[in-house]
Simulated scan of single mutants.
Amino acid sequence: MFEQLFLVRRIEPWFRNQLKRLVKTPKLHFLDSGLLAAMLGVAPDRIATNRSPFGPLLETFVVSEVLKLATWCETAPALYHYRDKDQDEVDIVLEDNTGAIVGIEIKAAATVTNADFKGLRKIGQVASDAFRIGLVLYDGDKILPFGDRLYAAPISCLWGP
């Protein structure tokens, strides 16, 4: 009822048996980032002086966009998140019916570092050959390689070239 009333999507944690030190608490995401911003009193002028609320709003926005894009698939992938007790995380973990994994981390920053891929690397190790790609979506304009099947990509890549 809460989820329907407030347009919230519950996202369960992703895990495999090899990952023993996980935080297995679901995440709740508002599906309307504009409504969430209004409820929190976050306006553009506030973000201009204090970017701290921008990260969670951007994550909410991207999650809702990925949910929409997933409906285009013949078989919609399951959507999860990942966080372990070391606080390494991946905002979105997509798993299709064959077990193939795609990880997406969302950063409200114009630059990306190797440290931003820590959670994606952990999932890649556990999922092994099932891990197809790990993306850090960021507020930049270039696609950058960060290792085997790991890339930083502009958030705008969600909607095409």
Results as ranks from 00 to 15, higher is better:
residue 80 Y to R: 14
residue 47 I to H: 10
residue 13 P to H: 13
residue 127 A to Q: 01
residue 158 L to W: 07
residue 11 I to C: 10
residue 88 D to K: 14
residue 115 A to N: 13
residue 77 P to Q: 04
residue 151 Y to E: 03
residue 65 E to P: 05
residue 89 E to P: 06
residue 130 A to I: 00
residue 48 A to D: 01
residue 24 K to H: 09
residue 41 G to Y: 03
residue 112 V to D: 07
residue 115 A to W: 10
residue 98 T to H: 15
residue 32 D to I: 00
residue 123 I to F: 05
residue 9 R to Y: 09
residue 110 A to N: 13
residue 85 K to F: 07
residue 119 G to P: 09
residue 1 M to V: 03
residue 14 W to E: 14
residue 145 P to Q: 08
residue 25 T to G: 08
residue 29 H to V: 00
residue 77 P to K: 05
residue 100 A to Y: 14
residue 124 G to Q: 09
residue 39 M to N: 06
residue 113 T to S: 15
residue 16 R to P: 00
residue 12 E to H: 12
residue 102 V to G: 01
residue 153 A to M: 10
residue 81 H to C: 12
residue 118 K to E: 10
residue 146 F to L: 06
residue 47 I to Y: 11
residue 94 L to K: 07
residue 128 S to D: 06
residue 4 Q to D: 06
residue 85 K to Q: 15
residue 66 V to I: 15
residue 120 L to S: 00
residue 14 W to F: 14
residue 33 S to E: 09
residue 23 V to T: 15
residue 106 I to Q: 00
residue 11 I to V: 15
residue 88 D to R: 11
residue 152 A to Q: 04
residue 33 S to W: 04
residue 143 I to M: 03
residue 155 I to Q: 01
residue 93 V to P: 01
residue 15 F to N: 06
residue 87 Q to C: 04
residue 47 I to K: 02
residue 44 P to Y: 07
residue 161 P to G: 00
residue 15 F to Q: 10
residue 52 S to V: 08
residue 16 R to Y: 13
residue 33 S to K: 02
residue 44 P to N: 09
residue 58 L to H: 08
residue 107 K to W: 10
residue 23 V to R: 15
residue 136 V to N: 05
residue 152 A to E: 07
residue 139 D to G: 11
residue 128 S to M: 02
residue 67 L to W: 12
residue 152 A to S: 13
residue 68 K to A: 15
residue 74 E to L: 12
residue 40 L to P: 01
residue 140 G to L: 00
residue 76 A to I: 15
residue 138 Y to Q: 02
residue 25 T to M: 10
residue 154 P to K: 05
residue 44 P to H: 02
residue 82 Y to C: 09
residue 134 G to F: 10
residue 131 F to P: 00
residue 126 V to I: 12
residue 21 R to T: 00
residue 10 R to C: 14
residue 55 G to T: 15
residue 158 L to Y: 04
residue 117 F to T: 03
residue 118 K to F: 07
residue 106 I to R: 03
residue 122 K to E: 06
residue 147 G to E: 10
residue 133 I to H: 05
residue 85 K to P: 02
residue 114 N to G: 06
residue 84 D to P: 13
residue 149 R to N: 10
residue 99 G to C: 14
residue 59 E to L: 06
residue 6 F to E: 07
residue 30 F to H: 03
residue 116 D to V: 08
residue 53 P to N: 12
residue 57 L to D: 04
residue 26 P to A: 10
residue 66 V to G: 06
residue 156 S to P: 02
residue 111 T to A: 08
residue 8 V to Y: 10
residue 88 D to I: 01
residue 32 D to A: 01
residue 26 P to S: 08
residue 109 A to G: 12
residue 93 V to G: 06
residue 30 F to T: 00
residue 153 A to H: 08
residue 98 T to K: 14
residue 49 T to P: 03
residue 111 T to Q: 13
residue 138 Y to L: 07
residue 150 L to K: 03
residue 11 I to G: 06
residue 9 R to C: 07
residue 126 V to L: 05
residue 133 I to K: 03
residue 114 N to M: 04
residue 132 R to T: 00
residue 84 D to R: 14
residue 3 E to N: 05
residue 33 S to Q: 03
residue 145 P to S: 05
residue 106 I to V: 15
residue 151 Y to S: 07
residue 22 L to K: 09
residue 42 V to A: 08
residue 148 D to Q: 15
residue 102 V to K: 05
residue 57 L to P: 01
residue 19 L to D: 13
residue 126 V to R: 01
residue 75 T to R: 15
residue 42 V to E: 10
residue 102 V to I: 15
residue 86 D to A: 13
residue 160 G to R: 02
residue 65 E to H: 06
residue 37 A to Q: 02
